[in-house]
């Protein structure tokens, strides 16, 4: 079943006169992992952020279960966010280094739920367990843990609200190979267990090829080719896709 449908989305940065997202349309089904690849600066992150309204897109629609997110009043959108979450590239800047991990996670429940203090703490612990970290992390600061652990906290925070759709924006690009593999295993496990849908943004075709069902290739603000992983990797049609693939062979 179709979960998210993006229709003719456009985002222009007038100051720099660039059309970062240039009439993009696609859909993501329930439980599906869709990859978005392209070189840096091609508009991947802008597309991801426009979908959940972290930035404002001029034109187009984003339907979530039939409802157009871009037309929702602000307050309604805020409560909608629990269903659509985002994991960011940089575990260093996406968490406030001075706020304890327990508080970072509890804040999610303050915004989205009406829990008592005790319940919030318990939920925060649960969130940590899901990503393979324990309650001992509650009192630590993001600045005192490793990059991989920080990325897990980002994932725990995104998962805490039980979303159905997660935009993963280069979630492993800044990590070492061994940590990267641990995080990819974690994301794939959770996706299967909870039947989540991912839009998985990466410039790394290896990562995309390893975990995605479908791939969309983006170049200069447009989708130039989409298809199943099998088709794109074995029989790329577009010149740009071929160039990207050659680079990792």
């Amino acid at each position: 079943m179709e979960l998210v449908k993006v229709n003719n989305l456009r985002k222009v940065f007038p100051k720099h006169k660039v059309t970062a997202v240039d009439g993009v349309s696609f859909s993501v089904n329930e439980g599906e992992v869709v990859g978005l690849v392209g070189e840096s600066g091609c508009g991947k992150s802008t597309l991801g952020r426009s979908i959940i309204r972290l930035i404002h897109a001029e034109e187009g629609n984003v339907f979530y279960k039939g409802e157009d997110l871009l037309k929702l009043p602000r307050r309604k959108m805020r409560s909608m966010r629990r269903h659509l979450q985002m994991i960011f590239q940089d575990p260093y800047t996406s968490l406030d280094p001075r706020v304890r991990i327990g508080d970072i996670l509890e804040e999610v429940f303050i915004i989205h739920e009406n829990f008592s203090r005790g319940e919030r703490r318990r939920k925060a612990e649960e969130a940590l367990e899901t990503v393979g970290l324990g309650a001992s992390y509650l009192n630590r600061l993001p600045s005192d843990i490793s990059g991989g652990e920080r990325q897990r906290i980002g994932i725990a925070r995104a998962l805490a609200t039980d979303p159905e759709f997660i935009i993963c924006d280069e979630p492993v690009s800044s990590l070492d190979l061994s940590v990267q593999a641990q995080i990819l295993n974690l994301l794939t496990d959770i996706q299967k267990r909870k039947n989540l849908a991912y839009l998985f943004i990466s410039h790394d075709l290896g990562v995309i090829g390893a975990i995605c069902d479908r791939v969309m290739v983006m170049n200069a603000g447009r989708l130039v080719e989409t298809g199943t992983c099998e088709n794109i990797f074995k029989d790329p049609k577009h010149e740009y896709t071929k160039r990207l693939l050659d680079a990792v062979r």
Partner: peptide, 23 residues
């Protein structure tokens, strides 16, 4: 070998990564 097994690729898609445990 652990580093090699951690390298994601289409050829080994949808398998669990043989990640090196711990850090």
């Amino acid at each position: 070998v652990g580093l090699m097994d951690s390298m994601p690729s289409f050829e080994r898609r949808k398998q669990k990564f043989n990640a090196i445990e711990g850090r």
